[in-house]
Simulated scan of single mutants.
Amino acid sequence: MNQHSLVLHAKQELKWTQKEIPPLKRDEVLVKTIAGAISIGAELPQYLETDITERQPQYPKETGYENYGEIVEVGPGVEVLKAGDKVVASYGHKDYGVIQEHRAIPVPKDIHYSDALLTILSCDAAKGVLKLNPGKEDKVLVTGMGTMGLLTVYFLKEYMDVHHIDVVEPNPTRRELAKQLGVNDLFTDTSVCPRDFYHFGLECSGKKDAFHCLQSSLVQEAGLCILSDGNKDIFDLQPEFYEKELKIIGSSDGWDYRKHAEWYFENVRRRGSLLNRLFELRIGKEELIQCFMDLGDGRVNPLKVLVEY
């Protein structure tokens, strides 16, 4: 059996490559991809060579990291998963993936793949929120209502039960999505945010102006978490950081993907699908290369792209 992978060979040069899938190791499972996603904030800078965290890109480079699929074969040492199970995993834009059993997140049969795919980034957002650990009565400001920002708002409301959440987002469509998730005030620009008002802030935009805004908007000794990838602007500390003795933390990856998924899937069942509207564009896998071209040229600008196999 062959595996087809979308590989970046140079700046804006994507090609499908093919290789034979080797026999499974004891703890591995073979997953047939049903759906995937393009995480634009992370993948587009790599495609365009604009990622400031990667000054000298190395090629060839595999692409993507969000997958939903069905297990079609298991290794002899696999203990829990079996053929026919649906899972979320992270192996990129491929029609088949080989992963270790412990890296596959089981998905209940009644959860649609458009919801299931978001559990990975939802867990990444949750980790940053949990590090700050705001209380129900604390005031929280979130900058940037891209995928990470909206998932952050979702976790703040649905898991932490924070009552007062404000957001900064210039895009009216994204502000509307944030409103549907239950935020309080929606600011179109950082210049109108109140100063010395919030107990916690989360930066999800990747923009230095938003990072500056958070430092001025937080109260004394407040906490700030950077959840954006940091691949757009260089962040710098403002006088308020020292004057207010602010605490800044970073957050990468999720806290526990399987445990988070248990809560997330149950919340989807209980509250309905609030998040699959993030997929503003749906394509087939044969359209992936053209989609990256369109994204790179600015012809399309969705929050997130759902890829069906």
Score class of each variant (00 low, 15 high):
residue 98 V to G: 05
residue 181 L to T: 02
residue 45 P to S: 08
residue 53 T to S: 11
residue 215 Q to Y: 05
residue 20 E to K: 10
residue 1 M to S: 11
residue 291 C to K: 02
residue 85 D to Q: 08
residue 226 I to K: 01
residue 230 G to T: 08
residue 173 T to E: 14
residue 42 A to Y: 11
residue 256 D to W: 04
residue 197 F to L: 05
residue 180 Q to L: 14
residue 178 A to G: 09
residue 47 Y to D: 02
residue 83 A to G: 14
residue 184 N to T: 13
residue 226 I to V: 15
residue 128 G to N: 03
residue 72 V to A: 07
residue 292 F to T: 00
residue 127 K to N: 02
residue 97 G to M: 14
residue 65 Y to W: 11
residue 30 L to K: 12
residue 141 L to Y: 03
residue 124 D to F: 04
residue 22 P to I: 03
residue 207 K to W: 07
residue 139 K to M: 11
residue 22 P to K: 04
residue 81 L to C: 12
residue 106 P to R: 05
residue 212 H to L: 03
residue 240 E to I: 06
residue 285 K to R: 13
residue 197 F to C: 07
residue 218 L to S: 01
residue 292 F to I: 01
residue 8 L to Q: 11
residue 57 P to C: 08
residue 190 T to G: 06
residue 251 S to R: 05
residue 219 V to P: 00
residue 85 D to Y: 09
residue 229 D to H: 15
residue 234 I to H: 15
residue 257 Y to H: 12
residue 167 V to I: 15
residue 262 E to L: 14
residue 199 H to A: 10
residue 67 N to L: 10
residue 158 E to K: 10
residue 280 E to Y: 06
residue 72 V to E: 13
residue 83 A to E: 15
residue 182 G to T: 02
residue 301 N to C: 10
residue 28 E to H: 12
residue 42 A to F: 10
residue 177 L to N: 01
residue 182 G to Y: 02
residue 291 C to Q: 03
residue 249 I to A: 13
residue 63 T to G: 01
residue 70 E to T: 14
residue 21 I to H: 02
residue 271 R to V: 01
residue 10 A to Q: 13
residue 56 Q to H: 15
residue 275 L to S: 06
residue 62 E to G: 12
residue 151 L to Q: 01
residue 178 A to M: 02
residue 141 L to P: 02
residue 212 H to T: 10
residue 25 K to H: 12
residue 67 N to I: 08
residue 196 D to N: 15
residue 198 Y to P: 05
residue 157 K to Y: 05
residue 173 T to P: 00
residue 279 F to H: 11
residue 288 L to R: 00
residue 119 T to G: 02
residue 291 C to F: 08
residue 10 A to M: 08
residue 157 K to A: 03
residue 174 R to I: 04
residue 42 A to H: 10
residue 286 E to Q: 12
residue 69 G to T: 07
residue 103 R to P: 01
residue 131 K to F: 09
residue 251 S to H: 04
residue 45 P to A: 06
residue 16 W to M: 04
residue 11 K to E: 14
residue 56 Q to I: 07
residue 73 E to Y: 03
residue 43 E to Y: 06
residue 211 F to S: 02
residue 135 G to M: 11
residue 297 D to T: 15
residue 176 E to D: 13
residue 219 V to M: 12
residue 269 R to W: 07
residue 167 V to S: 05
residue 146 G to K: 03
residue 140 V to F: 06
residue 35 A to F: 10
residue 211 F to L: 01
residue 187 F to P: 04
residue 110 D to M: 04
residue 168 V to C: 12
residue 140 V to D: 01
residue 192 V to L: 13
residue 296 G to H: 00
residue 206 G to M: 06
residue 153 V to A: 01
residue 189 D to T: 15
residue 155 F to S: 00
residue 241 F to E: 07
residue 184 N to A: 14
residue 216 S to F: 13
residue 77 G to R: 08
residue 308 E to N: 14
residue 114 S to W: 03
residue 279 F to V: 07
residue 107 V to A: 09
residue 191 S to M: 09
residue 294 D to R: 11
residue 260 H to S: 10
residue 237 L to E: 06
residue 176 E to V: 07
residue 249 I to Y: 08
residue 96 Y to A: 02
residue 136 K to I: 14
residue 250 G to V: 10
residue 107 V to K: 04
residue 11 K to Y: 09
residue 52 I to D: 10
residue 108 P to R: 08
residue 309 Y to N: 11
residue 273 S to D: 15
